Amino acid sequence: MHLLRAVTVEFGLRQAEFAARNGMHPTDVRALICLLDAARADEPATAGLLGGRLGLNSAGTTALIDRLERLGHVARVRDARDRRRILLRVEPEAVRLGREFFGPRIDAVLDVLDAFDPAERDAVRRFLTAALAAFAPEPGA
């Protein structure tokens, strides 16, 4: 548990460092991660999804999106399937900045993971999935 906490603390410090270097708030970085994760999972990235995942109210979510849009990190785009719905898209420059900063760290972790056999990777995945579930908010909370 102490190692997991240490990893999360270090990751949080790197997020704060990235935010400061790029004129952002740490919440902005968490928002970008959330939006990238939604895109990776092929989930529609709406303001509601973002606010719900970050625990923000409607006004806070709007202010966050406005700030990210002003910085050129996020664009609001109409949903091609439902023109009434607005989706959020992380802009390529934000992806480039993130890859430039976090890429070497991510690559180092992936190199370690590559040395694990499939059973070890499965054990790590099961552990991290269970740890995430233990810390996730209770439904309806």
Score class of each variant (00 low, 15 high):
1 M>E: 14
1 M>P: 08
2 H>C: 13
3 L>T: 09
4 L>E: 04
5 R>E: 15
5 R>D: 15
7 V>T: 09
7 V>E: 05
8 T>M: 08
9 V>Q: 13
11 F>D: 10
11 F>E: 13
12 G>Q: 07
13 L>Y: 12
13 L>I: 06
14 R>H: 08
16 A>I: 02
16 A>P: 01
16 A>H: 00
18 F>N: 05
21 R>H: 10
22 N>Q: 05
22 N>P: 01
25 H>G: 06
26 P>K: 04
27 T>N: 04
27 T>C: 04
28 D>T: 06
29 V>H: 01
31 A>N: 03
33 I>Q: 07
37 D>F: 07
38 A>M: 06
38 A>F: 03
39 A>K: 07
41 A>P: 11
41 A>Y: 14
43 E>Q: 11
43 E>I: 10
48 G>V: 05
50 L>S: 01
51 G>W: 01
52 G>E: 13
52 G>I: 07
53 R>C: 12
55 G>K: 11
55 G>A: 14
56 L>R: 06
58 S>M: 12
59 A>D: 02
60 G>V: 02
63 A>I: 07
65 I>T: 00
70 R>H: 04
71 L>Y: 03
72 G>Y: 01
72 G>W: 07
75 A>L: 10
77 V>N: 14
78 R>E: 02
79 D>C: 06
80 A>Q: 12
81 R>M: 14
82 D>I: 05
82 D>M: 03
84 R>K: 13
86 I>R: 12
87 L>G: 00
87 L>M: 02
90 V>T: 00
92 P>R: 07
92 P>G: 09
93 E>Q: 13
95 V>N: 07
95 V>H: 08
95 V>F: 08
97 L>S: 08
100 E>W: 15
102 F>P: 02
102 F>M: 12
104 P>T: 01
106 I>D: 11
107 D>H: 15
109 V>C: 13
109 V>K: 15
110 L>I: 01
110 L>V: 00
110 L>R: 03
110 L>A: 02
112 V>G: 05
112 V>T: 12
113 L>G: 00
113 L>I: 09
114 D>H: 12
115 A>Q: 11
115 A>N: 10
116 F>C: 03
116 F>K: 03
117 D>A: 12
119 A>P: 06
119 A>Y: 10
121 R>Q: 07
122 D>V: 12
123 A>E: 11
124 V>Q: 11
125 R>W: 05
125 R>A: 15
128 L>T: 00
128 L>R: 04
129 T>D: 14
129 T>L: 13
131 A>Y: 02
134 A>P: 13
135 F>H: 14
137 P>F: 07
137 P>H: 06
138 E>H: 07
138 E>D: 06
141 A>H: 14
